[in-house]
Amino acid sequence: MMTTPGAEKAAADSTLQALQDEMSDVRRVIDELDDELVTLLARRQRQIERAARVKPGLGIPARAPERVDEVLARVLGASRRESLSVELAMNLWTTIIEWSIEYEERLMGDKAPKGDAQSSDGGERS
C-alpha cells in the first residue's frame, strides 16, 4: 500500500502529539509525587521536633550511631523491596539523617546531651 506525503506527515504528527501528551502526563505525575514527598518530609520533620523535645529529659543525644545504622538498614531493605535504586536511597537518607541530627541539636540547644547514646533508643529516632 502506498502512502501519500500528507498521510505520512499526519501519522508523524499524530505520533509526535501522542509522545507530547505522554510527556505532559509524566511531568504531571512527577509534580504530584513531589508534592506528596514534601508532605511526608514535613511530617518527618515534625517527628524530629518531637524527638528534640523528649531526648533531653531522657539524656539522649541527637546523634546515636546505632539508631542511624538501624534507619539505614531498614531503608535499604525497603528500597530493595520497592526496586528503588539503593544508591539513591542511601544518598537521600544519609543526607536526611545528617540534616535531622543537626536540626535536633539546634532545637535542643544547651539542653542537648553530649556524646553518643549508649542505649538502643537514642539517635535519629524519627
Score class of each variant (00 low, 15 high):
Leu107Lys: 03
Arg80Ala: 06
Arg43Asp: 09
Ala42His: 09
Ala7Arg: 07
Asp121Phe: 12
Glu36Ile: 09
Gly123Cys: 12
Gly57Ala: 10
Gly109Arg: 05
Val54Glu: 09
Pro56Val: 04
Gly57Asp: 08
Ile96Leu: 15
Leu84His: 05
Gly123Val: 11
Gly115Glu: 06
Gly57Met: 13
Trp93Thr: 08
Leu19Gly: 09
Glu8Trp: 10
Gly109His: 05
Glu49Ser: 06
Gly57Leu: 12
Arg44Gln: 13
Ser85Gln: 10
Asp69Gln: 01
Glu102Thr: 15
Asp34Asn: 06
Ala12Leu: 00
Gly59Gln: 11
Trp93Glu: 09
Gly115Thr: 09
Leu19Ala: 08
Gly6Ile: 01
Thr15Trp: 12
Val26Thr: 07
Ala18Cys: 02
Ala11Met: 01
Ile97Gly: 14
Glu105Arg: 15
Glu49Asn: 09
Glu36His: 04
Asn91Ile: 08
Glu49Ala: 11
Leu16Thr: 00
Lys111Val: 05
Asp31Gln: 00
Ser83His: 12
Leu92Val: 15
Lys111Asp: 12
Ala10Gly: 03
Leu40Ala: 08
Thr4Trp: 02
Arg63Asp: 06
Asp13Gly: 03
Ser14Pro: 00
Glu66Lys: 06
Gly77Arg: 03
Arg46Tyr: 08
Leu92Asp: 13
Met2His: 02
Glu32Leu: 05
Ser126Pro: 06
Ser119Asn: 03
Val68Met: 01
Ala62Gln: 07
Arg53Ser: 07
Ala89Trp: 03
Gln47Lys: 06
Glu104His: 08
Ala42Phe: 09
Ser120Val: 13
Asp69Tyr: 01
Val71Ser: 01
Gln45Leu: 14
Met2Leu: 10
Glu8Gly: 02
Arg67Met: 03
Ile101Pro: 12
